[in-house]
Every structure is written in C-alpha cells, then in structure tokens.
Simulated scan of single mutants.
Amino acid sequence: MGISLDPQSLVMAQQRSRINKCSRHTESTNLTSFPKFHLLGLSEYPELQPILYGLFLLMYLVTVLGNLLIILVVSSDSHLHTPVHFFLSNLSFADICFISSTVPKMLTDIQSHSRVISYVGCLTRMSLFLFFVCMDDMLLTVMAYDRFVAICHPLHYPVIMNSHFCVFLVLVSFLFSLVKSQLHNLIVLQFPFFKDVEIGNFFCDPSQLLNLTCSDSFTNYLFMYFVGAIFGFLPISGILFSYYKIISSILRNTSAGGKYKAFSTCGSQLSVVCLFYGSASGEYLGSAVPSSPRKAVVASVIYTVVTPMLNPFIYSLRNRDIQSALWRLHSSSI
C-alpha cells in the first residue's frame, strides 16, 4: 500500500533530506579543505566541444575588436568628444571586461578538458562578473537619460549634460556596481559549507552558487529577489520612463521623416535593452527552480555573450557620427 503525504509533510520531508545531505557532506564540501568547484559547461558531448570552442572564440573576438574600435574612434576624433559618445566608449570598455569575465575561462576549459575552478577563483570571477554586468546595466540607464535630455530638453542639454556631470554619472555607476558585487561576495562568504560543488553553467553564476549553500533556501531566494529589485528594477524603470518620455515627445513635435528615424534608433536600442533584461531576468528567476538549472544556460549565453557583441552594432556602428569618424580614420591611415 502506498503512503500518501499531505503537502506540509512533503515539504518537511524535503527539508529534512536537504539538511541530512548537508550534514553528511559537511567535511567534504567545506571549501576551506575542498577549495574547488566544477563547472558543468554548455554541453557534455565531446563531439560538440570543437564547435562550441570555435563559435565562442569568434563571438569573443568580434565583441572585443568591435568595442576596441569604438573606443579608438571616439578617443581619436575630436568631433566625438560629446556626452553620448563618452558614455558609448565607457559602455564598450565595460562590455569587453564583461565578456572577458566568462568566455576566456570557458574556452580554456574546453581546450584543457578540465572544468575545475578554485573557490577563490570562483569568487573572484563572480565578483568581476557582477561588477561589469551591473556597470552595463547602469550605463544603459545613463545613456537612456542622456537621450531623454537631448530630445525632450534640447535647449538645456549643453548645460545639464556638462563634462563634470557626465563624469559624475559614470562614477556613480562604478560605485553602484562595486557595492553590488561586494554585497554578493560578503553573502557567499558567510556560507563555507555547500551541499554540492557542481555549478550548472559555464561560469560562476551567483544565483546558482547561492542555491548550493547549506543554508535556508527561503533566505537565499529572499536575498536574491531583494537585490534584483534594487539593482535591476530601478535601472530598468529609469530606462523605460526615459524612452516613454522620448517617444511622447517624438509623437508630439517631430515630422514624419524625423519620427521614422527616431523610432528606428530608439527601437534598436530598446531591443538590446529588452534582450539583456529579458534573458538576465529569465536566468535569475529560473535559477530558483532546482529541477531545471540547465535551462538557464541559454539565457546566460544571451546576456553574457550575445548582448555585448550586439552593442557596438546597435549603439555605435549604426550611428552616422561614428561612421563618419571611421571613414576619416580610414582616410588618414591611407
């Protein structure tokens, strides 16, 4: 005869099982004596590894070279010494560092056939990843605000977006990102015992790392959602509000040709923002489901690899000022 459990008893049984598992593995998963994690990567099939290596190496090189080109053009052309291009160059630098915090380690793992990473190395890479993903987040918000001032208050734009205020916005973004990354590190350092050392991703995913701790899962989820609300909801709210005001201003004051051009620019930028936030939110929230951690890998690839690769094309290479500067740089080098 089968034994049926009511929902409350089932939850209590699962909780006891988790506690017993942590208790049994306390010594083996104390990362002071077992200082290693194992990254599961993108695929376990050996025949796919060369394809993944070539694909991600290509995307990494395109991202780094494209963003370096933007930084070079903006710094070398005096016509581009404006607030919007200042933010673009900072975004390009953040994108290079962002993708460099994850992809090179994955490429090395594929080539060496080893996916082991030390506890210290995992925390370091997690801290860098969080810092630069938050930096990307903040710079996208700052750029949306810059476009809002330029379109909705064009006469006051030179006064509002002066050089000192632009530097201040970047510094605030830097400090905001630093606080987020160190906050995550401090929380993880409180839990030296882990119920598992396998991370179901190709990098040290902060949300999955918290799920591996031998602590109360509810507390972990509460912390994750609180940090996500503060460091994710506020910036995206600023972006959406800025573009709402921009679109309202365009509809009221712009000609038909100007509307098409403005909507084309705003639409492409909003598509990248939605791609970044949509995939990041899906990965972040999906990590709270223990039964399907691998489903978050695709979302991770989109916002950690694809979005930084698209940013140079969407925000810069489609910009006529950047195109003119590229042409002048090419002509001067001939």
Rank of each mutant, 00 (worst) to 15 (best):
A150L: 11
L139E: 07
F193H: 01
S255D: 15
S4Y: 13
K245A: 11
A299G: 14
N90W: 12
K21E: 10
F263D: 02
R24F: 14
N319K: 01
D216F: 02
Q182A: 07
V120S: 09
F194K: 09
L65I: 15
F193V: 03
R147K: 13
N220K: 11
M106T: 06
F176Y: 15
P235S: 10
D77Y: 01
G66I: 04
S118N: 10
N30G: 05
C166R: 05
T124D: 15
V197F: 04
F98A: 14
F233P: 00
Y53R: 13
I246Y: 05
A13I: 03
A262W: 07
I99H: 08
V297I: 15
S300Y: 03
F276V: 09
L139D: 12
P206E: 00
T141Q: 04
V142M: 06
F174N: 00
L175A: 15
V149H: 07
E44G: 09
S217H: 11
G278S: 13
Y284V: 02
V289D: 15
T108V: 01
L68I: 04
F37A: 01
S173Y: 02
C97S: 08
S33N: 14
I302T: 07
A229N: 07
H164P: 00
R18F: 15
P83A: 06
A280N: 07
A296T: 15
L183A: 08
L55S: 08
S215E: 10
L10C: 08
F86S: 13
T26L: 13
V64A: 07
P35R: 06
I239N: 13
F37M: 02
F226V: 13
K259I: 01
L65G: 01
I247T: 13
G228T: 04
A13E: 13
H153D: 12
H79M: 13
L72R: 09
S101F: 12
V103D: 04
F191E: 04
Y303L: 03
G54V: 00
P35F: 06
H156C: 05
S118C: 11
I246H: 07
S114H: 06
C204D: 06
T141S: 11
T304A: 06
M106L: 15
I3R: 07
T124I: 14
L210I: 00
A150D: 11
H156K: 12
F87G: 04
L5F: 14
D136L: 14
M126S: 10
L310C: 14
T108K: 01
Q269I: 04
I187K: 14
L155I: 06
L128V: 15
L5D: 03
L326S: 00
P192Y: 06
T307E: 12
E47A: 05
S89N: 09
I70R: 00
L169N: 12
F168K: 14
E44W: 08
S75C: 04
L40R: 11
H38W: 09
R16M: 14
S101L: 04
P104G: 06
K105I: 10
H79W: 08
P104H: 10
F226C: 10
R18V: 08
Y243V: 09
V11P: 00
L139K: 04
S17D: 14
S118R: 12
S92K: 11
P154E: 00
L40Q: 11
D137C: 15
A94S: 06
F193T: 00
L130F: 09
L48W: 04
I99C: 10
F203W: 08
A256K: 10
I160C: 05
G286M: 02
Y53C: 03
P83F: 09
N311W: 02
G258W: 03
I302N: 00
S28G: 00
L58D: 05
L240W: 03
